[in-house]
């Protein structure tokens, strides 16, 4: 080997090998990580700037005004805000007990050989795109609701004093209740998979000692597992609530798109996301700004709920690794 080649193979003293590579690689990693923060700030700023004309024109009362009239250029967010909250609450009322049941089944009752296939099936339910839920809701669920389920509800619950008003009127099929029902199916898998993970943080010693004292499965769940994993379970519910509040396509098909607040939860309504999906692409001027203002309200609502949920789950993670 020649002397020159040997010298080329020697590391030069004083030069740090890979310094340039380190700077480039580390620098771009830092920039892209910061980009995640910039993204959140950008979303907030762009929504505020877009919503500004609407808030300037209507004032803060935009939030609690129940009117949506493109012909007279009068807009208020109350009806969609109401629909968003009500459909999500319905979704939680239906979805929470069912998801709790599935999570209990998977962690406590299920034979080991069935655990993996059933978990996978539930997770596939989360993978089905939301537009498919919407379409299936419109063609499969709405006719069923109109013919059988809603008449039965109106006939039974509709006659109870005080809460009866919530369940009256003609069976439209579409409406806030149907939207909530589909939402409950959509958020179910999220709740199940987080709850299953959270239940598994319960130390086996605690569970086994309760069984050893002669506790039944339900007593172990009610007195040991749930109290121990309370924070995580509530976090799972709130994360699902955040999803339900912002869900668009599944709701848009079946909610009815009416900007009047009705007493009955079976009546058609609108959610913020459904009004955005229906009107945004064709809107301009004040209507566009009002829609962006709705979007801003949705942003505040969902990010508050999701943020709280994440804080709870983070606390749990810190505590139990």
């Amino acid at each position: 080997m020649s002397q020159a080649a040997l010298e080329a193979n020697q590391p030069r003293i004083g030069a740090h090998p890979g310094r340039l590579g380190n700077a480039l690689f580390g620098g771009s990693a830092w920039i892209f990580a910061i980009l995640v923060l910039v993204l959140l700030a950008g979303v907030m700023i762009s929504l505020i700037s877009g919503a500004w004309p609407a808030f300037q024109h209507f004032g803060v009362s935009f939030i609690w005004t129940e009117v949506w009239n493109p012909n007279r250029a009068r807009y208020g967010a109350l009806a969609p805000l109401y629909g968003t909250v009500v459909s999500s609450v319905i979704a939680m009322v239906i979805g929470v007990p069912i998801s709790l049941g599935i999570a209990i089944f998977l962690t406590e009752l299920c034979p080991t050989y069935l655990r993996r296939p059933i978990s996978t099936a539930v997770e596939l339910l989360a993978a089905v795109p939301s537009i498919i839920y919407g379409m299936w809701g419109l063609f499969a669920l709405v006719p069923l609701m109109q013919k059988y389920i809603e008449p039965a509800i109106i006939g039974s619950l509709g006659n109870i004093p005080l809460i009866g008003d919530l369940f009256q009127g003609p069976p439209y099929g579409i409406g806030l209740f149907t939207a909530g029902l589909i939402l409950s199916a959509m958020v179910l898998p999220y709740m199940v998979s987080i709850m299953r993970d959270v239940f598994e943080t319960v130390p086996p010693q605690l569970r086994e000692s309760a069984y050893g004292l002669g506790a039944t499965t339900w007593e172990v769940i009610g007195s040991v597992v749930l109290p121990y994993s309370r924070v995580g379970v509530i976090g799972a519910f709130m994360l699902a609530l955040g999803r339900a509040l912002g869900e668009t396509m599944a709701v848009t098909f079946v909610v009815g798109n009416s900007y009047h607040i009705m007493k009955s939860i079976l009546a058609p309504g609108a959610t913020i996301s459904s009004s955005l999906a229906n009107e945004f692409a064709e809107a301009d001027g004040l209507q566009l700004s009002s829609l962006l203002a709705e979007g801003f309200l949705l942003f505040v609502l969902t990010f508050t709920v999701i943020g709280m949920a994440r804080l709870m789950l983070l606390r749990l993670q810190r505590k139990y690794g």
Binding site: L47, S273, F280, G295
Partner: peptide, 17 residues
């Protein structure tokens, strides 16, 4: 938080930007 953010809000953001 962004993982669970509603996708329609991202749509509004990109529209604006």
């Amino acid at each position: 938080m962004l993982v669970s953010a509603p996708s329609i809000i991202i749509g509004l953001f990109v529209y604006q930007v």
